[in-house]
C-alpha cells in the first residue's frame, strides 16, 4: 500500500486523478484505520492532514466557514460555534469519546457519508453548503444534494472537500439534536434527529420548521412533508403528533443488529415530537398547547 502526504490541494487532486478509486483519503483516520484492519486495504493512502489552510473556523458575513480538517473537539470547544451554531455544537458534543473527538475531523464525518454521521442531520437542517475542489475548479454543493448513498457523495473519487459554509440560523430560532443510541454518545446512533424551528415574531405560528433525520435512510434526509405540514401553522400537540408521524413515514430505515426498521420509525416519531416540543419551548418560552 502506497502512502502519500500531499502539501497542497492541487497535489492531492493530482494524486486522486492518478489513482482514482484505488486512493483513500485519510485525515483523522478514525474510520479509515479501522477499515484497513477489518476490510480490504486500499491501493494507496492520501494523507491530507498537512495541507495548509483547511483547519480554521472563520466568520464570514452571516455564516461560519469551517475547514474540513477542523477536529470535532475544536468545534465543540469553539466559542463561535457555541454562540452561533448551538445545534452543531450539540451534535459534536454527543460525538463518540473525547479521544475520538480529538482526532476525527468534520470533513471526515461528512465525506464518510454514513447515514448515522453525527454532524450530518444538523448540517442539513442548518442549510450548510460544501465547497468541493476538483482539478478543473471549485464547485459549491448544498448539503441536500451532497449525499448520494451510504459512503457516497458528489465528490466521487476525484474531488476533495475544501470547506463547509454554514449560514447562521434566523433570529429567534431554536435548534436541537437528539440522538438515540443504546450507549449514548459512545455508540453509533440508532436514530439522530435535528430540529430547527423559527417562530413568527408574535411567537404564535411556525414560520418554518426544519427536520433532519439521521440513520433512517440511505443518506441523512430532511423530512420535507413533515416540514410542509408545519409551515405557517400555529403549533399544537395534535399538529406535533401528525408531523412526528409524517417524519416517521418519510424515513426508510433498515433492520440491522442495532435495531429493526419498525423500532427506528417509532424512535423517529418519538424524537421528532420531543424535538418540536423542546425547540418551541426554547424559542417561545411556551409549552406546545
Amino acid at each position: 500500500m502506497d502512502y502519500f502526504k500531499p502539501e497542497s490541494v492541487s497535489e492531492a487532486l493530482s494524486l486522486l486523478a492518478k489513482y482514482g478509486n484505488e486512493a483513500k483519503i485519510i485525515a483523522g483516520g478514525t474510520d479509515v484505520m479501522v477499515d484497513i484492519k477489518y476490510k480490504e486495504e486500499p491501493g494507496c493512502l492520501v494523507n491530507i492532514k498537512r495541507i495548509p489552510g483547511m483547519s480554521a473556523i472563520e466568520e464570514s458575513g452571516g455564516s461560519l466557514r469551517i475547514g474540513p480538517l477542523v477536529t470535532i473537539r475544536e468545534i465543540e470547544t469553539s466559542k463561535l460555534v457555541r454562540e452561533r451554531l448551538p445545534l452543531l455544537w450539540e451534535a459534536c458534543h454527543q460525538f463518540a469519546s473525547l479521544q475520538i473527538r480529538n482526532t476525527a475531523t468534520i470533513g471526515g464525518n461528512i465525506c464518510r457519508a454514513s447515514p448515522s454521521g453525527e454532524t450530518l442531520a444538523p448540517l442539513l437542517v442548518l442549510g450548510a453548503k460544501a465547497k468541493l475542489a476538483f482539478s478543473d475548479g471549485e464547485k459549491t454543493e448544498p448539503f441536500n444534494s451532497l449525499f448520494q448513498g451510504p459512503g457516497k457523495t458528489s465528490l466521487g473519487s476525484k474531488g476533495l472537500l475544501a470547506a463547509i459554509e454554514i449560514p447562521y440560523p434566523p433570529k429567534g430560532s431554536s435548534g436541537v439534536y437528539l440522538k438515540h443510541a443504546v450507549r449514548g454518545p459512545m455508540d453509533i446512533a440508532v436514530v439522530g434527529i435535528a430540529v430547527l424551528v423559527v417562530p413568527d415574531s408574535a411567537a404564535k405560528t411556525l414560520q418554518e420548521a426544519r427536520i433532519g433525520l439521521g440513520a433512517v435512510a440511505p443518506t441523512p434526509i430532511r423530512a420535507i412533508k413533515a416540514e410542509a405540514m408545519l409551515r405557517g401553522k400555529p403549533l399544537d400537540s395534535k399538529l406535533v403528533e401528525q408531523a412526528a408521524q409524517m417524519a416517521a413515514a418519510e424515513s426508510s430505515p433498515i433492520t440491522d443488529q442495532r435495531g429493526s426498521a419498525e423500532y427506528r420509525r417509532w424512535i423517529v416519531e418519538a424524537l421528532t415530537r420531543r424535538g418540536l416540543e423542546q425547540t418551541w419551548k426554547a424559542a417561545t418560552g411556551k409549552e406546545v398547547a
Partner: peptide, 16 residues
C-alpha cells in the same frame, strides 16, 4: 456473528 467488534457488540460504558 453480526456484531463481533466493540463497535457493534455493546458492552455497557461507565455512563450506563
Amino acid at each position: 456473528t453480526m456484531n463481533p467488534s466493540f463497535v457493534d457488540y455493546l458492552m455497557p460504558t461507565i455512563n450506563m
